[in-house]
Design a protein around this nucleic acid. Structure first.
Lengths: 343, 343
DNA sequence: AAAAACTACGAAAACGGTTTCGTGTTGATA
DNA sequence: TATCAACACGAAACCGTTTTCGTAGTTTTT
């Protein structure tokens, strides 16, 4: 167990001062070529690497970014995370992840922990419980302490900071419009209880599309499912009792369940009913028929979020002009597969 | 932008020394009750929290653990990660994640980065490329530097360290046996190119089950698919040209693709063919029919790995007895669903 | 009343770096 | 020859803690 070598040890070994070693390794021209070469050779031999912790303390920056997300076992968040990690890594940052598990308390706890020096800034998507409670003091707190914050997907209007969101309303509009173009006139919506502003946005796009194209909006054709613990019977009952020829689902699970329910009843997809979902995950790609779905480009969102955060971090070093916060919109795209009639 | 308050500031404000403040906050009995109360009240008022970086430097431990995995957009790794994060968080550790993306170079690079003080120990699953190259010097390196290492799933026999694996051979044996019990006699295997020891283990279990039950092993009934870029036609061709009444697939994607191919050809699952996969992800739960599959209990693996690592970390503080490395086996279980005939 | 023992606190080292500011030794300049 | 700049390096402060050890001042002991 040989601990990593330090400047002090090199200095002692070579009979010079710590400063000389430090400067030599930075190739400072304060030091003679001779000495520099000697030090550099020695350092190389012993595979010297500066200690990150010491650097962090000195520089007051850790080169770590904190990611706080509600869930990691979830395709969308996973892809966003992938984008963050990728961009961060390419730019010399490491990523510390905390999962809030949709809990307000864990979210607050984790953020406080990270804010005690572990990271330079936050990227997060707030938990369901936090959205319900409508309490964002922990976010304000970290911002006041000078931590840059980038919110993605589940963002908070009342917090002023950088944000990355999707064009939920618009893409739902497009998806609905596509079904109308196929000739569908009785289009259903399967959504979740909506303290999620994203679900709400999607519903709005859906309704606007109906309205714009002169299709009647029937609120009975909207099925609202609970956030946790969806039972298949909810969907089967809906399929049984309602009459529709198109469905927009706010995630791919609902879409696949719905396809299974219709098919079970002998209703064919896409001949009798068109189905469009959200999230381009495994389910969409491998269901039968394959699912036409909204690709959210999570990885791109993650990269964008990381880019915005890192830009703030690097600029902070310079002077502090007026805060200007951006909201970037990542455009979702509709991927046409087998559950709709493609033109 | 009010930076966090430090001991020094409290000391100055209260006209005492830094040591006194530090001791007061630790409720040391070196300090008079009076002073302690004053300091504690002040610290509370200004919400003092010790700086993690300074603590790390002082204590030579970061309370961070490094997780290096090949992929995060992958159900199994995601669940393992979830387990790690959960256990770590409950025990006061944060988790830094690096994704190797199946690349040897990234794996080495990330580990070196993390080893410069960012973390206290590693949990990892080696990349495909590393397994191919058979070069594990970076693992030996970090171990020599005194970092505890826990390997999971894709472990390396030649590295001596703590390990967490699944009983792949045994569960494949069980799965195959189950199909034999159903009366299947022509059982196929769909697997990946096998520099993955896990795939190999599964194949072994499959073969042993056939042998033990007197079923002929026909090597033509084994389909080996590439690691990346599987095309559906490979599977369809296999279904077309071979004759089988049961299939064991080493992951759920292969299983779902295979079910789709058979159904397309008019072969029914499970009436004509039983199908069993690995990984209890969304696909297995929402496919039609639902898939009988091997639940790998990734979360449990993650928790176990974290537990083993943290135990090593906390014990290190004491004295260093003989190294004793454990290999824990997480028992996979067979989840019976609609793609097999359940008894 | 002198010695011993507490009490309550501060100075300083240490963790591992970076960086500013001397300073002794050269060689060149006036 | 006295002065000065350049060169090459070292001392020390600093980042924010913890912890050991020293020490005034007070109290107890003999």
């Amino acid at each position: 167990m040989k601990r990593k070598i330090t400047l002090k040890q090199i200095a002692r070994e070579l009979g010079v001062s710590i400063s000389t070693v430090s400067k030599s390794l930075k190739d400072s021209d304060e030091i003679s070529t001779d000495t520099k070469q000697k030090v550099q050779a020695f350092a190389k031999l012993y595979n010297y690497r500066p200690n990150n912790i010491a650097l962090s303390l000195k520089n007051r920056r850790t080169k770590n970014i904190g990611v706080v997300i509600p869930d990691i076992v979830h395709h969308f968040f996973t892809t966003v995370f992938r984008g963050i990690e990728k961009y961060a890594n390419e730019h010399g940052y490491n990523v510390v992840v905390c999962v809030s598990d949709e809990s307000y308390e864990k979210e607050v706890f984790n953020m406080e922990l990270l804010a005690n020096g572990s990271i330079d800034g936050f990227i997060m998507s707030v938990s369901a419980e936090t959205q319900q409670k409508n309490d964002f003091s922990h976010l304000k707190e970290v911002m006041e302490q000078g931590f840059p914050l980038v919110l993605f997907d589940r963002v908070i209007d009342e917090i002023e900071c950088d944000k990355v969101i999707m064009n939920d309303e618009e893409i739902a509009y497009q998806a609905t419009t596509k079904m109308i173009a196929e000739g569908r006139r009785k289009i259903a919506l399967v959504t979740t209880e909506s303290y999620f502003n994203v679900s709400e946005k999607r519903a709005e796009g859906y309704r606007r599309a109906l309205k714009d194209h002169g299709v009647d909006y029937d609120e009975k054709l909207t099925l609202v499912l609970p956030f946790k613990g969806v039972e298949e019977s909810y969907i089967e009952d809906f399929v049984e009792s309602k009459n529709f020829d198109g469905v927009l689902c706010v995630n791919e699970i609902f879409a696949v369940l719905l396809m299974a329910a219709t098919q079970k009843k002998g209703i064919r997809v896409p001949e009798d009913v068109s189905v469009i979902g959200f999230t381009d995950g495994l389910l969409s790609r491998y269901s039968s028929p394959t699912l036409t779905t909204v690709a959210q480009h999570g990885e791109k969102m993650g990269e964008m979020a990381a880019e915005m955060l890192i830009e703030k971090l690097e600029n902070e070093i310079g002077f502090h002009e007026e805060e200007d916060y951006r909201t970037e919109i990542i455009k979702a795209t509709l991927i046409e597969r087998g559950s709709t009639i493609n033109t």
